[in-house]
Amino acid sequence: MTVERKKIHPYKFSLWLGLAGIIMMFAGLTSAYIVKRSQPGWESFTLPKIFIYSTLVILVSSVTVQVALKAFRERLMAKYRLFFAITAALGLLFISMQIIGFYQFHASGKRMIGLGSNPAYSFVLAIAGLHIVHILGGLVALSIVFFKAFGRKTRNYDVVPVELIATYWHFVDILWVYLFVFFSLLH
């Protein structure tokens, strides 16, 4: 159906541009964080342990989405569905662990919102919270493509949507790793 495969698919190109936009958003937030850190009233912190585990979870999910993509390319649809489902489950697990982490953080006296909150802790919630929203976006896209794979009417072997999701998923994964290292080093 296509003639020129040497060119990058326009959708993929758009995705990369979109990722550049997301990078700018988090760059804005993390640079605000850096500026704020050098001002008086900043309080130092260490993140709860659970964030280490959630980081591992999201890293594993990157592997599973890659396996799913490879399976799709080889038209092993059962395997593709299985690993796509695992990826989605790991994504949900990651989100839950993040939220538990927020509660633990809050419970340890580091108030992120409301009376007596410190911008240092609020930043963790704002930045990591915004990251969760991006994971959720990935999950929605993933579910749409996943349920399309069960459609009985048409057999769809178009690899582009799956590739797009895999790229996005790796991106939000790397984004979290960056944020985690960022919070750990610049607390």
Binding site: M24, M25, F26, A27, G28, L29, A32, K36, M112, I113, G114, L115, S117, N118, P119, S122, F123, L125, A126, L130
Partner: peptide, 19 residues
């Protein structure tokens, strides 16, 4: 970047933060 500024503003308005 404007969007991130707005998010922090919304936090300050509704979640009692002090950005």
């Amino acid at each position: 970047v404007l969007f991130s500024g707005f998010i922090l503003l919304l936090f300050d308005r509704h979640l009692g933060t002090s950005f």
